[in-house]
Design a protein around this nucleic acid. Sequence first.
DNA 1: AATCAATAAGAGACCGGTCTCTTTTAGAAG
DNA 2: CTTCTAAAAGAGACCGGTCTCTTATTGATT
Lengths: 359, 359
Amino acid sequence: MKRTAPKTQSITVSDVARVANVSKATAARVLGGYGVVSDTIRANVMAAAKALDYRPNELARSMTTGRSGIIGVVVGDIENPFFSLAVRGISDAARAAGFNVILANSGERIDAERAAVRLLIGKRVDGLIVTPSESRDISHLRDIHRSGRPLALLDRALPDLDVDTVTVDDRDIAMRATRILVDAGHSKIAYVTAVDAEGNEYRDLGQIYTSSVRERIDGFLKVCRDAGIDRPERHIRLGATSPDETRKLADKLLSGPDRPTAILASDSLIALEIFKVMRQRGLRIPQDISLITFHDADWTSVTTPPITVVDQPVYALGKSVAELLIRRLKGEARPAERLILPTTIIERGSVGPPAAYKL
Amino acid sequence: MKRTAPKTQSITVSDVARVANVSKATAARVLGGYGVVSDTIRANVMAAAKALDYRPNELARSMTTGRSGIIGVVVGDIENPFFSLAVRGISDAARAAGFNVILANSGERIDAERAAVRLLIGKRVDGLIVTPSESRDISHLRDIHRSGRPLALLDRALPDLDVDTVTVDDRDIAMRATRILVDAGHSKIAYVTAVDAEGNEYRDLGQIYTSSVRERIDGFLKVCRDAGIDRPERHIRLGATSPDETRKLADKLLSGPDRPTAILASDSLIALEIFKVMRQRGLRIPQDISLITFHDADWTSVTTPPITVVDQPVYALGKSVAELLIRRLKGEARPAERLILPTTIIERGSVGPPAAYKL
DNA sequence: AATCAATAAGAGACCGGTCTCTTTTAGAAG
DNA sequence: CTTCTAAAAGAGACCGGTCTCTTATTGATT
């Protein structure tokens, strides 16, 4: 393969130094804003830099300093409004502290996540924020830790990894959401998630390697069982990984003989597709079927009826995890913190008593 | 496990070379995958690298090569689904060609855009994709060009800047959308955009420095005038920069005595807020008021009624611009290309005859 | 057996900054 | 007018790779 030589020789400190008639070291002191220089020399160097239109090479700079001023963020799916809002929280906190953000998408695939982490470490980011797509193989996350770079986790905790973590209480909030449905009289409640497992069929919690979802399912099942619902796990559906998959899955779910009377959707992307399928099948909400979804996506308030949602503090989630990481980047040494942010449920109009209940 | 390296110092080619008993140059050839090395030596070096857990320092690598393998993307607002979808198009194309993407948000502010460009150039990205927030001051974009790095523009063309550009025909599509409203009988049509100008009030096209929006307004006004509508520009509203601003603006627009009977929204974020305000004011769509928006956002198909939209090929827009840029990065030299992708309108249920029309 | 070309490995400069260490300069003290 | 000290400027090593140029080794040719 050919190596094209980029003949774009840009202006360097040496160039500036030559024009300003000082040594490279002195020019570097002025341009890098460190050390001590006399006012006259400083003015000369600045003038020369301006005349030549000098632009520092951040690469060279961070190679010697070891710091890049960049926070690496690995997120499941940037198109999911949940994540893009969280990323804004991260970006805002980063900018406020003078850091920049590199974003990488894992597509919720562990191999892509591992590659992204390797890339970011290679780019010598100062620290990383990761939404671990699963808890089974976290060797690459341990590597980060071992490489001396701080790591913080967003939305999903890893019991085995003692690092700064910001989540919500997924178990508790799933319990509260489920209870709303149970209290309305439902006994056939489905839980639909994008997380997949072997065989595509839910058997037990041990299959679920995404901590947030495991917690939610745990809470969901507990409330169902407490309410005396028989084998609630039979209505758990995994693998709603794309709009297409979700549609197929929802279609099957809603056409079976044992059709659920209420659905709890694990994210707003899933809920949207389920909503469409319900419409298409002529199911009225909430008369024929009830729906609650995680994440207060913008569309949930404009449908007829508007959707009852679990309103996670998404922006705060991102902002907090970034702030935690930045404090550590600034040298603060303290034990890892596990922040759990409070979450509310916004009750709108998508929950009602089950159809059979009214007979 | 052997003694874990507690040193923060990372493993370099020299370390690997020493352990493998070869020169630094040879180790570098193996680890960098260039030059020619015998199989035995290669195996030795690889073994040493694995034993030491060598990770290349991408910073050092791209400092000498001048290439970073990164495409910088500066986008107006990553939370706008329009942009996040376009970014996915870019990312997919980039990944397929072995490039990574750094994302920066300009918030549609020219100073932030300029800062982002400077940062990315400093980080020595191989090329840039920018959604220029305005056409007045493009000196920073000329700088990119001058620095020898290829630049490509997304969604917004700049007549004065002869670089690869991918857009849609905004003027034409705005004309078609407006014509739908005119044909339905409307003569009081509002155009609402996030773009702001001095005085917050529209006077003439010369005020509008965002090319796509200028084109759209141009087309909108042409169709209005051709239809004999008097002073159509009086219903143009600028400065819907945030949900809050949009709400205020929409509230005022819909409460005036000269209330429009149809609204054309410049993006889906604006349309959503307008939709909410309409609901809140008890305006029925399309009986009392009609609505068309740019961008087929996911929520537009689930409202009652669903919204008629301008369906730009957003993903393709991102993918195409990235492919154009990548071809140039691979060394292809050809005149700048200006791609205009075809756009359709999806007619749903949000357009009807104006209320007065039915009298 | 001697010559030559091709191949493999080594030595060291270089990229553009930072930073330590050394030298020069200037002002204060004796 | 020295001498001393602190401040300012200079010299050059260094970061961790790449890459050019040189040297050593091998096999083929005559």
